[in-house]
Amino acid sequence: MENLNNFQLLEYAAWGISALLGLWMLTDMIRTNRAHSEETLLSSKEGEIEDSLVIDPPHQGGHL
């Protein structure tokens, strides 16, 4: 480790964060696929203006 300079540490950090983000997305995707039926996940219809039937009401209106 004593041979590592700051930039090399930055490079290892970049690899590490990338791996974590990738793992998080994969895990969440698998969990979501298991938690919901395909029918629900694929229920989106093109160009629907009416949003009344959607789930997850706190996300209506885009408040962050």
Binding site: A35, T40, S43, I49, D56, Q60
Partner: peptide, 13 residues
């Protein structure tokens, strides 16, 4: 939130 049968998900406007 857990979806129940018959509910729909769409992209968010």
């Amino acid at each position: 939130y857990t979806a129940v049968h018959g509910e729909k998900v769409s992209l968010l406007r």
